[in-house]
Write a protein that binds this DNA or RNA. Structure first.
Lengths: 332, 332
DNA sequence: CTGAAAGCGCTAACAT
DNA sequence: ATGTTAGCGCTTTCAG
């Protein structure tokens, strides 16, 4: 645990002032070529790198884009990959921050992260699935799949209703008539849209809506267990379930297995998102693909445009059915 | 783009000094209960959050663990997920930084990131597959799968030799006797260990080692094309190939297909890593699984121990064979 | 119990 | 061309 090498150490070793070192490093003019090269040699010898923190306190610009997430789960990670790839070759580094982990309450994590990092440290932010309305921010922001409407400066999201309808129609076309829905967090707009897509597909097919067939999954594995059990414990259980996201779909399948049901023979399950685990699970999970990588790239495009002075934008990406092995015709 | 709310704004609005606000926020004693509650009310009203940057300049401790990667690719993302999960419920937030994106050269990205963030901003770092020797650092560091030996303070890595031996033995047990190896970057220790595992499995089975059956793949798709062609163009080509990682295995299969060979009928291929793409490829790629999530969790455990004053550790995780569809008995 | 002042590492005026 | 100074937002002695 040696002490950090500071600009001060470099100045001292080079026999010049701190200001001169700063100018040399940042290529400002007003430094003699000989001094310049001497300073740079000392910098190399000492292995000096400026502290991001100190630099960002003084500068307005840091060259870092922040990706703010509640938690590093598969959905956010795929997005992060897209963001990172899209930022290759630009002058920006990526910094991803999961801010709600230590904070007691998940609510408002985005506001907290944004004000802790914004204005300093990051030049702009991409916020993944924020659940509250945006705070007054000091940097340009793009929200991906915001959960509370369009009040965010710029947004990138998938057309949830269409995707959910496609998933439900897929089950209907296989011959299912008792179709359950393991829904997402009902306080989130995406969950409401997905339920709406589910209902409209049922209605379009002339199937009745049965409130007993809708259980809560909360988009999370742990929160889905009870709902999955509840659906399967019904006197007249569903033969197919549309889960609001892949994590709850995977949990749905696990619970089905635990109860002695085979997927897809006894129960068809379809999810939403298409996280990597969906394709590698056995059986492979049928789902509705969100083009996460492309969404990350779109967010970057919009953010860079805002950084360059451009206005707000709302990007809507299509969701696409990915029928795989977890859905089949009902056996009864 | 409104201005950030600073501690100054809070002090002014509350009619107290900046120092008092700081004490109130951080629960230091020496603040009257009434002042305390008044200040906290103003903090809430204004939505103030302290700047991570400013705080970390003054404090030694920030409550943030840094995960430093060259780039957000699948391997690093899986690790990140493990780290993040393991950090749930602790007092630490996670900050992941990809530092080589804007930097021209990839070499030494870990040194750069470490000195830009260490000492300030992060209390400890988990560095993913660093390629150089460790710099003198100002915070505890754990290296995951370091590529240049054990000079890092603490390390977490997979037992490459055993994994490679298991992969080769799998091919031998299927009846193959002419087994090729598409090796990794020979400047990296993991690649050398994997080749060693391959050789020792051959030796243990009494099979001769043939240098012509070893080609370079460099761990990357683009670098594997030539080696894959070379192996298949031999007068007496291999009936099975152990590729040093999944990316080169996938390329091996692509090249085989291009040359009119079917996998696994005409050629068996096995990889290493078990990235998500391995399981979703058709045919599913047999491989050796690195327990990435568990490795991330192990890194957290070691780092937290070091942060609490514990000594260095080297954790070695077992790699596990995942036989899937790309390997079968030889047809000739 | 409260506030004034110093300083973390750095950059940007402003002297010299 | 170089150095001096001020200050970014915050925490921490140290006086009052």
């Amino acid at each position: 645990m040696t002490r950090r090498i500071t600009i001060h150490d470099v100045a001292q070793a080079a026999g010049v002032s701190v200001a001169t070192v700063s100018k040399a490093i940042n290529g400002r003019d007003g430094v003699a070529p000989s001094t310049m090269s001497h300073v740079m040699r000392v910098v190399d010898e000492l292995g000096y790198e400026s502290s991001l923190v100190a630099t960002s306190m003084r500068r307005q610009r840091t060259g870092v884009i922040g990706v703010l997430v509640a938690e590093f789960e598969p959905f956010a990670l795929q997005l992060l990959q897209g963001v990172s790839t899209a930022l290759q070759g630009t002058e920006y580094d990526v910094l991803a921050y999961a801010g709600s982990i230590s904070a007691g309450d998940h609510r408002g994590w985005e506001r907290r992260s944004l004000s802790r990092l914004g204005g300093t440290l990051i030049d702009g932010a991409i916020v993944v699935t924020p659940t509250s309305t945006p705070p007054a921010a000091s940097v340009p922001i793009v929200a991906i799949d915001p959960h509370e409407g369009p009040e965010w400066p710029s947004t990138v999201s998938v057309i949830n209703t269409d995707g959910a309808r496609a998933a439900t129609e897929h089950l209907i076309s296989l011959g299912h008539t008792r179709i359950g829905h393991l829904r997402g967090r009902t306080d989130l707009i995406s969950a409401r849209q997905r339920e709406e897509g589910y209902r409209s597909a049922l209605a379009a097919a002339g199937l009745p809506f049965d409130a007993a067939l809708v259980a809560d999954g909360g988009y999370r594995t742990a929160d889905s267990t009870a709902g999955a059990h509840a659906l399967l414990a019904l006197a007249d259980p569903p033969t197919a379930v549309f889960a609001a996201n892949d994590l709850s779909a995977l949990e749905m399948m696990r619970v089905a297995g635990e109860r002695g049901l085979r997927v897809p023979d006894d129960l068809s399950v379809i999810g939403f998102d298409d996280i990597p685990e969906a394709a590698s699970h056995v059986p492979q999970l049928s789902t509705v693909r969100q083009p996460l990588t492309e969404m990350g790239a779109a967010a970057v495009r919009v953010l860079l445009s805002m950084l360059a002075g451009g206005g707000r934008e709302d990007v809507r990406m299509p969701a696409e059915l990915r029928a795989r092995r977890s859905t089949a015709a009902p056996s009864r």
